[in-house]
Computed example of a mutant assay.
Amino acid sequence: MEIRNSERKLPISLENLDLNTNRGPKKKIPISAYLSSSGISAFKSGPPSLVSLCLGVVGRHLEEIIPCLADISVIFPADIKMSIAAIAKRRKLLDDDLIISLADSSWEILDVSGSDVSNSGLAKVAEICKSLRAVDISRCNKITSMGVSELVQHCRSLETLRCGGCPSSESTARRSLSMFKPNLSNVEGETWEELDTTEIGHGGQSLRWLVWPRIDKASLEMLSMECPRIVVNPKPSLLTYSLNEAPREALPDVALDEPFVKDIDPETWVVRGFVQNPTSASLSLNSNELPIAEKFRLAFAERDARLAPKRAKNARQHQRRAERNWMMSSDEAKAMVFASKATRSLHKS
């Protein structure tokens, strides 16, 4: 590319163009640095905020803070509590005590997917957070239909539920479907307008979106027949906005709590060498959790120990060969060897 001047031509390349002043060559900066994903994101989002940096530090040392978290979390804003819960979930530290200590009455979403939260923890959080609109309980082995019942009883505004993902959660989802079906056996009134929702349901009549990726055919047919208001596994709409368009919380490929950790360094929840469960007595010795340098050191030590006997044998052979070569090198050496053998024979006799 050339820039024409009244006096001469100035050759300017993209490799040394000053992108800050746009006034010609100043400092060579590879254009690939600006076209990389990190460079583009830096231009768009800018540096992380001080709050995000602080949350990153808290997240890296979360297991040390957990014992006193119930006492200090009362001064945190609701969004900060949600961010800490999201970090704890990603660090596999989220359980009943932790989520209860962080629960805030203003929360509208709850993401405990893949955590150790159980029925009692979910029931207590649902009792505190009555305004929940979207809840993700997928891959939770300790949550059963009893926990889902407590959830729908306390949270009458629940619109989106995520479930499934593991055998236990799949079973919980199947057993919970009856809570969302209308019960028309003992109702009074001549028209639908006269019916009270508390009389035809079990408290789960506000549900509109069910995210269950591996829903079985029988459950899907039952929902379509008896609960046509519930949309199962909605897809994002490519058309203009409509009343039936699925909200962000109902899209399966979007983490429910992602907005609360989007500005936090992902290294926060991949800290090496931490104890995932603070109550466990010992650190797991799984080699997959070791740093790569430690894996190399252990592999070298194992190989060194395996080859030690062979090295010792080679050393003995080398010594005997050296002695034999020395003995054959001169008559004086031969005489010394024979004299030594004769002396040993005399001592034995």
Results as ranks from 00 to 15, higher is better:
198 T>V: 15
99 I>A: 04
112 V>K: 09
203 G>K: 05
99 I>H: 02
203 G>V: 03
157 S>Y: 13
161 L>C: 14
149 S>V: 00
126 A>T: 07
195 L>I: 06
97 D>V: 03
179 M>N: 13
187 V>R: 11
160 T>G: 08
175 R>H: 13
184 L>Y: 14
93 L>M: 15
131 S>T: 03
100 I>G: 07
122 L>A: 06
86 A>Y: 10
193 E>F: 07
136 D>F: 04
113 S>V: 06
119 N>C: 05
163 C>V: 13
111 D>S: 06
181 K>N: 11
89 K>F: 01
102 L>H: 12
79 D>S: 12
167 P>I: 02
102 L>K: 09
122 L>Q: 01
147 G>F: 01
180 F>C: 04
82 M>H: 15
79 D>A: 11
139 R>F: 02
102 L>P: 00
202 H>R: 07
179 M>P: 02
125 V>T: 09
133 R>W: 10
101 S>I: 09
187 V>S: 08
188 E>C: 14
152 V>G: 01
158 L>M: 10
102 L>D: 00
111 D>Y: 08
185 S>D: 15
141 N>D: 11
151 L>H: 02
191 T>R: 15
88 A>D: 00
99 I>Y: 12
137 I>D: 05
148 V>Q: 05
98 L>S: 00
121 G>N: 05
156 R>Y: 05
139 R>A: 00
169 S>G: 13
155 C>Q: 01
120 S>E: 13
129 C>A: 07
192 W>S: 09
97 D>S: 14
95 D>V: 03
132 L>M: 02
157 S>H: 12
189 G>N: 13
185 S>T: 14
118 S>Q: 07
134 A>N: 08
105 S>Y: 12
72 I>C: 07
98 L>T: 14
147 G>W: 04
181 K>C: 11
79 D>Q: 15
152 V>M: 02
126 A>C: 14
168 S>L: 14
208 R>L: 14
145 S>E: 06
73 S>L: 11
83 S>F: 00
133 R>Q: 11
167 P>L: 04
210 L>N: 13
154 H>F: 07
148 V>N: 05
74 V>N: 15
173 A>T: 01
193 E>R: 04
195 L>H: 12
71 D>E: 10
93 L>W: 09
95 D>G: 05
129 C>H: 10
166 C>S: 15
90 R>P: 07
164 G>T: 08
125 V>S: 03
147 G>D: 06
163 C>P: 00
160 T>I: 14
203 G>D: 05
105 S>W: 09
176 S>K: 03
196 D>Q: 03
132 L>H: 01
147 G>L: 08
82 M>F: 09
119 N>Q: 05
198 T>M: 03
76 F>Y: 12
94 L>D: 06
139 R>K: 07
78 A>W: 12
75 I>C: 12
167 P>E: 06
184 L>G: 03
83 S>A: 13
111 D>K: 03
100 I>A: 10
155 C>A: 14
187 V>P: 06
141 N>I: 09
209 W>G: 01
202 H>D: 10
126 A>S: 15
155 C>P: 08
174 R>E: 08
157 S>V: 08
120 S>C: 12
140 C>Q: 02
86 A>Q: 00
135 V>R: 05
124 K>Q: 09
129 C>I: 09
178 S>W: 01
192 W>H: 01
118 S>E: 04
171 S>L: 11
151 L>N: 05
204 G>N: 01
81 K>T: 10
201 G>R: 08
163 C>W: 01
126 A>H: 08
99 I>L: 11
168 S>A: 13
196 D>N: 12
71 D>C: 07
